[in-house]
Design a protein around this nucleic acid. Structure first.
Lengths: 236, 236
DNA sequence: GTCTCTCAAATTGTATACAATACTGTGCAC
DNA sequence: GTGCACAGTATTGTATACAATTTGAGAGAC
């Protein structure tokens, strides 16, 4: 079984080397909402900040583009991605298709070690919150989901979930409407409890409702059409 | 609704430009089994063949690596990917999780136009077979699945399916054990029939059994463990 | 004949230079 | 005052040069 560890890179870097390091650093910043959607990532600026050549920057940006964290616009540059409302809905639909099943599998495959790691994970999340690091807490919150998918030991689906969680981070940055911390904290505890009991059905149901809960915290109302003409609006 | 057309690139190229062209060309060759798993893709050789600089080649190879069609091995080069037996199982498991649901959605969203395109697609597939182009038929066979996912109009999941179909092409190149053409030909007809009737449940069930049929045509037997020691085997 | 070591060539990783495109500010016309 | 055109600069796309790593062949030792 693949052991989830916090030291594991959040998004699998392309390969070792300076570009992988840069990619990991940018990925982390995006996940922690230090880099917000729409932010322009200029090549020369990144070269300056990280003291690497443009070659390295471009490789990292391309890789981030494939992770869908960054949009590359030809001849215009790279920008932290901005998922639309439609995409937000799709992402959570895909998550609700994949993750409950994955939670079920994880419960069936659960070991004491994996359980301890999930628990340590939740503790780290709370710690980050108390230390006034909401960005880190947010990232860890998403990582919890990725860890579950890795425990389920189906790497293809885990890869998809990883991608969906990454995309979710961007969606949350744009559309989150709650004041409180991201994932309702009892939800992760309840999941771990189901895992402790190796109760797949319970885990599946909990994951489903947990995802629904996240979805309801997003403001995905259709933006109403702008008025056709100012005259129409402003006319007495 | 996104209209599936055969002229659409099989794998979404990174962006326009020479690297995107090269990527599409290599992707096509891989899908048509003209480039087989394990094949080394040397940078200079590709530069020669396609008359582009190494920059373009490297960009295309990186993108193909993200599509999981190519493995980049640091300091060693790029190789057409070779999925393991385990990965093969995972890919089809993921497909059986996603595609039946997608077929259901496609049936519900079916239009006469989309239906005509699917029918044209099957015709092109048969045509390729009769013209003695099994590689093209194979590619079109996989593309049929991608087209269905696009009709379902959930682009996030369609993206995943596209990736799974790409990976399947490699798996089939390695593990296919049937003599005949790839997808049993009646299966696609039956699916189109269900779509014509807008019968989601039937489409879902047919897709499920179709995928199971493909899976059974793959030789995914565990390779038996090699003997621990030659002495153990050879001792009289 | 086989194995090991060395060296040169091949290949990949990366930096830098040049080419192409987009952006912004200024000046001019209305 | 506003809008448009142009020029200069910034930025991205791509080619090429240089650096680092790998591979394979040949020679020598056993």
């Amino acid at each position: 079984m693949t052991k989830p560890t916090e030291s594991q890179d959040f998004i699998q870097p392309s390969l070792n080397g300076p570009s992988a390091k840069l990619e990991a650093s940018l990925s982390l910043a995006i996940h922690e909402h230090r880099l917000l959607p729409g932010t322009k990532l200029g090549e020369d600026e990144l070269c300056d900040i990280y003291s690497v050549s443009r070659t390295v920057v471009r490789t990292a940006l391309q890789s981030l583009s494939h992770s869908q964290l960054v949009d590359l616009k030809r001849n215009r540059g790279a920008f932290v991605a901005q998922p639309t409302i439609r995409e937000a809905r799709e992402v959570f639909e895909a998550r609700s298709l994949l993750e409950p099943r994955t939670a079920y599998s994880a419960a069936e495959r659960m070991t004491d070690e994996a359980l301890a790691l999930l628990e340590a994970h939740i503790a780290a999340e709370h710690e980050a919150l108390e230390a006034g690091k909401p960005g880190k807490a947010l990232r860890l919150s998403g990582q919890f989901h990725v860890d579950i998918s890795r425990i389920a030991d189906q790497s293809t689906i885990a890869g998809f979930i990883e991608r969906l969680v990454a995309r979710s981070s961007l969606i949350i940055a744009i559309y989150w409407k709650r004041q409180s911390a991201l994932c309702e904290k009892h939800a992760h505890h309840a999941l771990v409890d189901a895992f402790r009991r190796r109760d797949g059905s319970d885990a599946e149901a909990l994951m489903k409702s947990h995802l629904l809960d996240i979805l309801t915290a997003l403001d995905l109302r259709d933006i109403s059409d702008p008025p056709s003409k100012l005259r129409d609006v402003l006319k007495p």
